[in-house]
Simulated assay, not measured.
Amino acid sequence: MSQPPTLLADARCFALLPCAGSGSRAGTAAPKQYQPVAGVPMVRHTLAAFAAVSRIARVLVVVAPGDGVLAADASISVAACGGATRAESVFNGLAALRAQGVRDDDWVLVHDAARCLITPAQIDALIDACLPDAVGGLLALPLPDTLKSESGGRVVATIDRDHKWLAQTPQMFRLGLLHDALAARAATGFAGITDEASAVEAAGFQPLLVRGSAQNIKVTYPEDFALAEAVLRSRTT
């Protein structure tokens, strides 16, 4: 296994939100991250959660080139360097953070803009768990349901769910480690890289699993919007 970089006591925490996707599965005319949920664009709820965490020095939102939706808000740091895939957007965003003076030993929390139900408490819990860790880690949940594999639309096997977790975000790693892990897969178009942890795993590390929340869903399908709105409204009553 590769050796993680040395921990530095003065390492800072930054957040990186890939926000360049089209959200085709959501069935919306515009990118889903800008669709209203509980009265405001979904990404605004995500940004509000990170803004409430004092240990986050800055949040960088990675959008597609030409996307000016957030550009008019001077309080939001935006980099129009989104790529064709989520992994490419994150890779480009890490380069943008470097260019802005973020150090390789600083921590970066990568979070899906469409996980708008994340809470400051969950972000803080991840930071608390990862700061003393040699590698970093991610929010996740133990798999609660029976898992099936299929072929041609029919079940071919039931898979043992023991020791299996559903990955969530944020996922927290040092900038240099994550950048190098993604760079090692860039020539393949980031094949097989479905999240930051998978890149770090491919580099020979074992990320820490930090228990998340069942409410921290990624809004993906049309019915998810109603669920997200109900949860958000319940938090204000």
Score class of each variant (00 low, 15 high):
1 M>W: 13
2 S>Q: 11
2 S>Y: 08
5 P>I: 14
5 P>L: 12
10 D>S: 08
12 R>D: 09
13 C>V: 13
14 F>G: 04
14 F>M: 05
14 F>W: 11
16 L>A: 08
18 P>M: 00
18 P>G: 03
21 G>Q: 05
21 G>R: 04
27 G>I: 06
27 G>T: 07
28 T>H: 09
29 A>W: 11
30 A>F: 10
32 K>D: 12
34 Y>G: 05
36 P>K: 09
37 V>I: 12
38 A>P: 03
45 H>A: 02
47 L>I: 03
48 A>W: 01
49 A>K: 00
51 A>W: 07
55 R>E: 15
58 R>W: 02
58 R>G: 05
58 R>T: 07
59 V>G: 01
60 L>R: 08
61 V>P: 00
62 V>R: 02
64 A>P: 00
65 P>G: 02
70 L>K: 07
77 S>A: 15
79 A>E: 10
79 A>R: 02
80 A>W: 05
83 G>K: 06
84 A>F: 08
85 T>M: 01
86 R>D: 12
89 S>M: 00
89 S>V: 02
89 S>D: 05
90 V>G: 03
91 F>Y: 15
92 N>R: 09
93 G>D: 06
94 L>E: 04
94 L>F: 06
96 A>S: 12
98 R>L: 08
101 G>S: 03
103 R>A: 09
105 D>Q: 10
105 D>A: 08
106 D>V: 00
107 W>K: 02
108 V>N: 03
111 H>F: 05
117 L>S: 10
118 I>P: 00
118 I>R: 05
122 Q>R: 14
123 I>M: 03
125 A>E: 11
127 I>L: 15
129 A>H: 07
129 A>V: 05
131 L>K: 11
131 L>V: 15
133 D>R: 01
133 D>G: 05
138 L>H: 14
139 L>M: 09
140 A>I: 04
141 L>Y: 09
141 L>K: 09
142 P>E: 12
143 L>V: 09
143 L>Y: 13
144 P>L: 06
144 P>M: 04
145 D>S: 15
149 S>L: 15
150 E>G: 15
150 E>T: 15
152 G>P: 06
153 G>W: 10
154 R>H: 14
158 T>Q: 12
163 H>I: 02
164 K>H: 11
169 T>V: 09
169 T>F: 09
169 T>G: 14
172 M>R: 12
174 R>I: 03
174 R>M: 00
174 R>D: 05
174 R>L: 03
175 L>A: 06
175 L>W: 00
179 H>T: 14
179 H>C: 08
179 H>P: 00
180 D>Y: 01
182 L>V: 05
185 R>M: 08
185 R>G: 01
191 A>K: 11
192 G>V: 02
192 G>M: 01
195 D>C: 13
197 A>Q: 08
202 A>V: 03
207 P>I: 01
209 L>F: 13
209 L>H: 15
212 G>T: 00
212 G>Y: 07
213 S>H: 13
215 Q>F: 11
215 Q>C: 10
218 K>E: 13
220 T>L: 10
221 Y>C: 11
221 Y>G: 07
222 P>I: 05
222 P>M: 04
222 P>C: 06
224 D>I: 03
225 F>N: 08
227 L>Y: 14
230 A>D: 10
233 R>E: 15
234 S>V: 01
234 S>A: 14
235 R>C: 00
235 R>E: 09
236 T>D: 13
